[in-house]
Amino acid sequence: MSIKRACEYFNVSRSGYYAFVNRSPSSLTLENEVLSEIIRAIYFKHKGRYGSRRIQVELKQEHQLAVSRKRIGRLLRKQGLYTKGKRRKYKKQAADRCANPNLIKQNFHANEPNQTWFRDISYVPTQEGMLYCSVFIDCCTLTCAEFAIREHLRDSLVIDSLEVPLHREKPKNGLLIHTDQGSQYTGHRFYEYSRMHHFVHSQSWKGNPYDNAVMESFFKSFKREILPNKPFQTKSQAKLDIIDYLENHYN
């Protein structure tokens, strides 16, 4: 179709069409183009884990750019980029007595490092079988104090992985370790180990994930940001990705 017929079809003048074609882009358009490239680079740098909130922080810290979250979200959507995962809600369950008292009582505050540690285990599916990742989170710094990846769920997964952080951090007697009511923490071996190393064991109420909210929040991010849509092909690849995430990204 000729330009003349196209202009007649859309009911616009030819002069108006040529003025639009020859018009230079506005400063806002140029700014959005440059900003989109920076946001895209940050998004792929963190493997799709960063949404508008964390991209906003990195833009301010690394590039000295103050950009609103709404604008960042709009530019992400325009490029078809969406953060991994989705929000899920827990279902309330009836509480029950626990083997050890709940000393945390949902007070997630510590004055100094190595005062309170949280602990939990997550499943990592692969095409070669299941892996189990056990992680310690320090309540004060919210960093990963130690982790272990094994192919079993025996209590040795928990006990063996405690050796390194206890030797490296050298916490004082009375270190508080909070866990759920998994069998790895309620057995006699973990009980004897806690007495031998003089740490205090606290446990969540049964069916109440809010008592261990630090670990629930961590594993929510962990599963959203590291686990692919399909299981890992090999266990070795899963281990490499988990170690890279915990050591080079999360901490």
Rank of each mutant, 00 (worst) to 15 (best):
K47L: 13
R53N: 04
M130H: 08
N229L: 02
I137M: 02
P171T: 01
R88A: 15
L76S: 00
N229I: 00
R5L: 12
H197V: 08
Y9S: 09
K92R: 13
I177P: 07
L30Y: 00
F20E: 15
T186L: 01
I3A: 13
Q115V: 00
P25R: 13
I42M: 02
V164Y: 13
A95S: 12
M1A: 13
G73V: 02
V67L: 02
E58S: 06
G16Y: 03
A94R: 10
I38D: 06
S2L: 15
C144D: 00
I38L: 08
N32T: 02
R88E: 12
L153T: 12
K206F: 04
N107E: 09
A19R: 13
A95F: 10
T141F: 03
E247Y: 10
A6E: 14
I72D: 06
H63D: 14
E169T: 03
S13W: 02
K60I: 07
C98N: 09
Q127A: 09
G73W: 01
K235A: 10
H198I: 01
V135A: 15
A19D: 13
V21I: 05
M1F: 10
G129K: 01
N32W: 06
A19P: 01
N11D: 15
K47D: 14
Q203C: 11
H167M: 06
L75P: 01
F108D: 08
M130P: 02
T29M: 13
N229T: 03
V34H: 07
Q181L: 12
E112H: 05
E247G: 07
D138C: 07
L175W: 09
P101Q: 01
K4Y: 12
H46F: 15
Y123K: 02
N32H: 10
D180K: 07
A6Y: 12
S27C: 09
L162D: 08
T126K: 00
D120A: 05
K89A: 11
S194L: 04
Q181W: 01
T234I: 02
D211N: 09
V158D: 03
R5H: 12
S194Y: 11
E216C: 02
D138Q: 09
I42F: 02
E128R: 10
Q115H: 10
S134P: 12
V21R: 14
M130E: 12
F232D: 05
L166I: 13
G174Y: 03
Q93I: 01
P171R: 02
L81F: 08
D138F: 03
E216S: 05
F44G: 04
V124Q: 08
L166V: 08
Q93D: 14
N114D: 08
C140K: 00
R97D: 04
V57I: 15
C139R: 05
P113D: 08
S68I: 00
V214P: 03
C144S: 06
S26L: 00
V67K: 01
V200Q: 04
K206Q: 15
R87G: 12
R69A: 14
I104T: 03
R88F: 14
T143M: 15
I55L: 01
Q106G: 06
Y193W: 05
F136R: 04
L153A: 02
S204C: 01
R74Q: 11
